[in-house]
Amino acid sequence: MEKFKATIQLRIKLLAIVMVITVLSNVILQFMRDRLPARPDFIFGFQTGVFIGLLVFLLYIISKYTACLKNAEALKKLYIKEHDEREQLIAYKASVLALVVLLVIVALSTVIAGFFNIIVFITLLSVMGLLLIVMLTTLTYYRRAL
């Protein structure tokens, strides 16, 4: 359990760094606002929402991990939850299915976009290509690793 405790402490540090980077990048972007192209209101709203959502999520995870470090039973429960073999199988099956569904949706959208807009078509084609490259790379890695 000491090894897992060290992992959680490392995760807290990394999440804190991500939080600082998020806040700093937002502050820098606010200062550079005049030099950047004007944004429509809904894009500004979306960006603010993502920023606040990310901060709240990071704070929640950090506080959850901190609480677990102070309570041995909670730490054990977290360890079990993260290492539970059924949970891992569920995550694996859901990920594979989600990836296939996403690939099919992107492929269909690419075909449909080809009739209307060349820029959207190329963007979706690039996304599909990237998804396939990531999928093939991870498949190759795990075929060699396992």
Binding site: I80, H83, R86
Partner: peptide
């Protein structure tokens, strides 16, 4: 808890 899995498992 004894065998290292969740109640749901």
């Amino acid at each position: 808890l004894a065998v290292g899995v969740t109640r749901q498992t």
